[in-house]
Nucleic acid binder design. Sequence first.
DNA 1: GTGTGGATTATCT
DNA 2: GATAATCCACACC
Length: 201
Amino acid sequence: MPDRLRRSFFRKPADRLAADLLGQRLVRAHRGHRRAGIIVETEAYLGTIDAAAHTYQGRRTPRNEAMYADAGHAYVYFTYGMHHCMNVVAHSADTPEAVLIRALEPAEGLEAIRRRRPKARRDTDLTSGPAKLCAALDIDRKLNAADLTSSTRLWIEPGHTITPDRIVRTPRIGIDYAAEWTEKPLRFCLRNHPHLSRPAP
DNA sequence: GTGTGGATTATCT
DNA sequence: GATAATCCACACC
């Protein structure tokens, strides 16, 4: 079993986990081949109090059930009729917080990633968005509710240690309907990183 | 380089 | 029936 992040790493509030996931390595294995990228951008969704979260006010549906699992599971959902997005469940079972993975720096399996992203003109277009990276790493609802601490298909390995001065916080992307939660600085980026979904000031 | 609108359908109300 | 934690193409500067 490869070295990977354990349950205890994920058992913390989503905003702390969002910062701690920066610099770690997301790995997708399929038939003995690896695709991987370094996490460079995340967003925290703070559970039942967060008007932008799928679990706002305790909503619990078949789609978001994985957010109620223990920390360290994946929550993968389908949206806009054509895209998948991947989250890492935070905190603990029945406390439905999660971290959306928004961008990666491609690190392994570049040929396979490029095949999955035929419209990308430059390498910085390959995984610079939550749906782009799911397409690139072939992450879809088959992996919803996968346990990242034991899955043979999807996990996270320890990467670089990131010091706080290299992290920029901004409001979340695509949230314009969540009242006071719209502007909270819950997006976490590696400062000036070329693979961000959008530049962070 | 920036801004706008269309794609496309599972999911929820 | 309306919406969506998005992406891409194309117009315009």
